[in-house]
Nucleic acid binder design. Sequence first.
DNA 1: CATGAATGAGCTTTCATTCAT
DNA 2: CATGAATGAAAGCTCATTCAT
Lengths: 197, 197, 197, 197
Amino acid sequence: MTTESPNTIKREAILNATLELLASCGFHGFSIKQLAAKAGVATGTVYLYFEDRDSLIRELHMNILQRFAEAMFVDHNDALPLAEQHHHLCCNLWRFLVDNPSILLSKAQFDHLPPDILRSQRDDAWSLFAPLRALFARGRQSGQIKDLQDDVLASLSFEPYMFLARQQLIGVIQIDTDKLCEIITASWDAIARPTAA
Amino acid sequence: MTTESPNTIKREAILNATLELLASCGFHGFSIKQLAAKAGVATGTVYLYFEDRDSLIRELHMNILQRFAEAMFVDHNDALPLAEQHHHLCCNLWRFLVDNPSILLSKAQFDHLPPDILRSQRDDAWSLFAPLRALFARGRQSGQIKDLQDDVLASLSFEPYMFLARQQLIGVIQIDTDKLCEIITASWDAIARPTAA
Amino acid sequence: MTTESPNTIKREAILNATLELLASCGFHGFSIKQLAAKAGVATGTVYLYFEDRDSLIRELHMNILQRFAEAMFVDHNDALPLAEQHHHLCCNLWRFLVDNPSILLSKAQFDHLPPDILRSQRDDAWSLFAPLRALFARGRQSGQIKDLQDDVLASLSFEPYMFLARQQLIGVIQIDTDKLCEIITASWDAIARPTAA
Amino acid sequence: MTTESPNTIKREAILNATLELLASCGFHGFSIKQLAAKAGVATGTVYLYFEDRDSLIRELHMNILQRFAEAMFVDHNDALPLAEQHHHLCCNLWRFLVDNPSILLSKAQFDHLPPDILRSQRDDAWSLFAPLRALFARGRQSGQIKDLQDDVLASLSFEPYMFLARQQLIGVIQIDTDKLCEIITASWDAIARPTAA
DNA sequence: CATGAATGAGCTTTCATTCAT
DNA sequence: CATGAATGAAAGCTCATTCAT
């Protein structure tokens, strides 16, 4: 479909290699030499495509956030009941995390960028996750979702998956489809306004 | 009661300095020289108390987990109703995170220790959190808590606080006591078995 | 008259760019990439016209020596009295140095070519400065100039201008036309045989 | 006499090695690794004594200027006739240059520091050469020396020696004691006010 | 026990040079 | 002829670790 210029191919190779190393070695745990070797280019080549180490990391971060958001909203349908929408988002999220262990593991690394960067990131991130905010807004209006701010709802409902996916990845737990459904229900209970008895 | 030998005092100074630097500079973001300076000892002295950099980090991790557990179970009373016990644990957790930003920030840094270390840590951790497991067990038995395994219940109920505390620390949200109570209720809803209508 | 082939035009562009960069950045202070950019050609093109960096520098050196000699002997007239010839040479030299700060500044850079190169340069240089040697020879014969070898006479009479031009360039002194005449007289006194009292 | 602390010994070793390399390879022509090897220390050790490459070079420069001035004024006696004082200074200068080829060769390298550094250097240099300024001042007053500013007199009288020493060092000329005396006379003629006929 | 000077491997980054287009 | 992406050696500098004092 879209033919990648060789230019773009090397960029991607470098970004992918960075992601893998970030996941396996942590933020400062790998060298540009390693990175270049993994990407199949010479060390100097990295600097043809990225200003320096930091800007490479920053660019990767934005790249990851986008893939994250994109994956979550696959087949998103805001006409469905909210609980079903939420269920679908959680399924997408779980599949994405399980399919992309590198992203899962590298995610935590980005929490330690300087606070000002983190703050600006947060704004960018929320714009990528607009459909989620819309869902929360409608839920609060209709009384189906608790009257809590977006950050709180998001953390209650989605943070647990990050932890659980990590635990599954290192092999200490095992979540099958049935278990996942129960967990999704539980994470909905966290944000859902209790139905009047 | 227990008089600290000067021996132990320097150990603690080094561990504390490591924690602060870990929080502010990240895993590989500080040097042993900096660390020694902050701890008020000579660089060589660090190696009298710790095998090497890695073992210092590992020991700090265990140290933090202990303080974590200790803080959570302050004034824990297993005679109270489960929801109240849970509320109290969450309050303790929140206070601990807010009072110890260094620990909050450095927590994520430990996710990139080698997987085998992470697995053995998990076992140690669960032994530290025995009262929590007891609470979950009783809840499942009495039908007050969903029939999910401990990791899942823990992640549903406590992971959100880690995220929220970090957001508050970098100043993008502000959780007061009232908000906290609502959040605690929500995190209880996540693990509580819905009351029959 | 002589139409420059495009071939020669690019050579010149590269040599000129090299001179400017040599003056402003010093010997190892600029890259071939910078050089190519300044000359308006691709990096690879530099290697079509010059073997490598060193040979480019060497060629520039010869180029500069030629321009130096050429400038000094503008309107040279060996029929005039020696002191007048000398005065004229000094004026030419001063004007050349003031008009070509790049050459002035890069001059010192060439002192660190390998000694064997320096020796062969010296021979080439003296052939370029033949009219000066003739002047010295006539002066010694006629008793107007001290009986010292050419290198010595040249250094006594012309080295000071190099230093003074550099000082004026960095702005710590200011030589006007009157001052220059006094200095030229002084530099003639250095090599002139004292008139018998 | 003065016992050197081992601390100072390594500093000196590094400075001396730098001087030699500066003389033989030029400003940017040697690496810190080479320098360390020549000084007999590890690369890291260089950075225990000097902030970075630049500050090492700057410090060396001041060091050299001081040795320069010190050497010139050995046995300086301002009670002697001016011409004799001048003769003595020139002899000292010549001996210093011949005895310290490294300084001679590295001298030119310092002409390419940034202009602002050069300007501040010039002030420091002139304070080191105070006795020379005094000599010039007395000469102008008494009418023995031409009425030219210090920079000009200095360049007329001393620059030629720099050039000649360099030529002798690369072996293209040979100045013996008798020749030197003639040259010194010539360099005095350059600055001396001509005796009225 | 405690020190901190010394080490040298290893880091990020630059740059002279090559070569497929 | 001309290009400029790609290379990889080598630069300046840092830092975990050791050891003589």
